[in-house]
Computed example of a mutant assay.
Amino acid sequence: MDKVPMTVRGEQLLREELDRLLKRRPEITQAIAEARELGDLKENAEYHAAREEQGICEAQIRDIEYKLSVSQVIDVAKMPNNGKVIFGATVSLIDADTEAEVTYQIVGDDEADIKQHLISVNSPIARGLIGKEEGDEVSISTPGGVKEFEIDSVEYR
């Protein structure tokens, strides 16, 4: 089984979500018990809703437990800062066309959120940056065409 890279923050968020879901289990069980007391289960909407919620909750718990079991947590804060772009690095780029600066952190697939400037290690931009160094100019093929960037800085936080 291949390990999937994950940042320390990503693991922490998954564990928090797992804790929240595990705390919901008894509440859902209680809701099912209360709905059962109302009588005929065939026409009991509360019972069916509680059972559906239980199924969703259990599926989410299994999904998170699986993700945690196959993850390889990488703490980039403990890496020596040699200016190379690696998994977990925060990279500041300058767009060669517009001179606009953008910063991304390269994270695992499940952690990616472009609105928070977290890009998947498997994204075109991340793949084009991995292994490069501060000061390098890179051409990256994106769905919108080829983009030219200069790597302004690389941080491991």
Rank of each mutant, 00 (worst) to 15 (best):
G39K: 13
D113T: 01
D2H: 02
V8I: 15
T103S: 06
V76L: 00
Q60F: 08
M6P: 09
F149S: 07
H117P: 00
H117R: 10
E52Y: 12
E11A: 13
P80D: 04
V8E: 15
N81V: 14
F149M: 13
E52K: 09
M1G: 06
G128T: 08
I56P: 04
R157I: 06
I56D: 06
M79K: 04
R36T: 09
V85T: 12
V146K: 07
L14W: 07
D63K: 15
D19F: 01
M79A: 10
L41F: 10
E37C: 11
K23G: 11
T98L: 03
I114V: 10
S69R: 01
I86Y: 01
Y156N: 08
D97V: 10
E27F: 00
E53I: 12
Y156W: 00
Y104M: 06
R20K: 03
L13K: 14
P80V: 10
L68Y: 03
I130C: 00
D75K: 07
A126I: 04
L13H: 14
M79T: 04
A100L: 06
A59D: 01
S92G: 05
R24L: 11
T103G: 04
K67P: 00
K84N: 09
F87K: 03
Q54A: 11
D97E: 15
H117M: 07
D40H: 12
A89P: 00
L13C: 06
I61D: 05
G128L: 06
I94W: 03
G131N: 01
R36C: 10
K132S: 09
G39R: 14
N44P: 13
A77C: 00
K23I: 08
A89W: 03
T142H: 07
I140S: 05
E52R: 06
R25V: 15
E65A: 00
A50G: 09
I64V: 13
S92I: 09
D152E: 15
V85Q: 05
G39P: 13
T103A: 02
T90F: 06
R20P: 02
E137L: 06
V138G: 08
K115N: 09
I94C: 11
L21I: 04
I140N: 03
I119C: 03
L22T: 06
I74H: 12
P143D: 02
A89G: 04
D109K: 03
L118Y: 12
P80H: 04
E65D: 00
L93S: 11
